[in-house]
């Protein structure tokens, strides 16, 4: 417990989290502070490049082992399974319609790479190492949840009367999953991972002035923008949310994280690796999955799933969640 509070205090006092709070506060106070969209996009690409490359270099240093493949499989399994649990909880404890519940569930099975980036930042600050291939696990966990979400929605549509007004399968899910798997973040993350793996320490030495020192500053600027977006989303979308849904957005990361902890224990990951797998399982998507849901489940309300994942779960994970996941990671290891 003492360890958790120590990590929590360090986390809340870190520049990254404080910039996020600044952004969120500015948005809630209706300040005109904003980061231009093109800049935010470039920052996101930079972060993907840096995270992917560093992960690849780490794998090059230690060589791939059986845990890499096993971790990928566990990550994919978690991404498939978490939406099913989320869906059951949403149906039982919230007033959400079936399609909305399926769409929200898909978000919680998928991942937030920015939450992952903040967790790696905290690990580096604490001098805790982690398995570099978790970057690849992060990429692998993005899409399976979308398939689960669509399956949950279709299952519901089949149970309703024929022609019950859902378009859950109106657009082919095969091409949808391909579009998600090839979205710019994933291509940059996985591409940089392989480039880091191929070029190893030598390659790292040539680009480290670009990807190591500026990383934290760029992450601060990106988190400022995330705070602005989350604050605006919360301001606009709060009327869609009731207490049961807000509670879901806080207990669901803990449930996902607990499953991630189980996976990490089975895989025998290090303390840092376990913390990252827990973080991935606890995080919820707000970039790739919302776009996919507009294609696959257009009748589900974006105001609900975006506000929950970006306005509630992301701030929770950034502030309280990550110190908790780091603590649990250390217990497991």
């Amino acid at each position: 417990m003492e360890q958790f509070f120590g990590l929590l205090a360090a986390n809340l006092a870190s520049p990254v989290v404080l910039f996020f709070i600044l952004g969120m506060g500015a948005a809630l106070l209706r300040s005109d502070l904003e980061v231009p969209q093109a800049v935010a996009k470039a920052l996101a690409l930079y972060l993907m490049l840096a995270i992917g490359f560093k992960g690849g270099v780490e794998v090059a240093g230690h060589g791939p082992d059986f845990r890499l493949l096993a971790s990928l499989l566990v990550g994919i399994l978690l991404s498939f399974m978490i939406p099913i649990i989320a869906f059951a909880l949403l149906q039982r404890f919230t007033p959400l319609e079936r399609l909305d519940a399926a769409a929200v569930s898909a978000h919680y099975g998928s991942i937030s790479i920015v939450t992952f980036a903040v967790a790696t930042d905290r690990l580096v600050a604490g001098g805790i190492g982690y398995e570099g291939y978790l970057v690849a696990v992060a990429a692998a966990m993005e899409s399976p949840a979308i398939a689960s979400g669509i399956w949950l929605a279709r299952r519901g549509a089949a149970a309703q009367t024929a022609g019950g007004g859902t378009s859950a399968n109106a657009n082919g899910s095969g091409s949808l999953l391909r579009e998600v798997a090839l979205n710019s973040s994933i291509v940059m993350l996985v591409g940089a991972f392989f480039i880091g793996w191929i070029t190893g320490a030598e390659g790292f030495a040539t680009v480290s002035p670009f990807i190591v020192d500026p990383f934290k500053g760029v992450l601060c600027l990106f988190l400022l923008d995330m705070g602005l977006i989350a604050g605006r989303g919360l301001r606009g979308g709060q009327r869609e949310l009731g207490l049961p849904l807000i509670a879901f957005a806080i207990y669901m990361p803990l449930i996902g994280g607990a499953l991630g902890a189980l996976g990490a224990a089975l895989l025998g990951l290090s303390a840092g690796g376990a913390a990252l797998l827990i973080t991935l399982s606890a995080s919820a998507s707000y970039i790739a999955v919302p776009a996919a849901m507009r294609l696959a489940l257009p009748e589900a309300k974006p105001g609900i799933y975006l506000t929950l994942s970006l306005g509630v779960t992301f701030p929770f994970n950034i502030s309280l969640g990550i110190p908790l996941y780091l603590t649990v990671g250390q217990w497991i290891a």
Binding site: Q37, L306, L310
Partner: peptide
């Protein structure tokens, strides 16, 4: 009908 939207200040193209 349901809400306002704007191009800037979105992290996803969904909005």
């Amino acid at each position: 009908e349901e809400t306002d939207w704007q191009r800037e200040g979105q992290i996803t193209i969904a909005g």
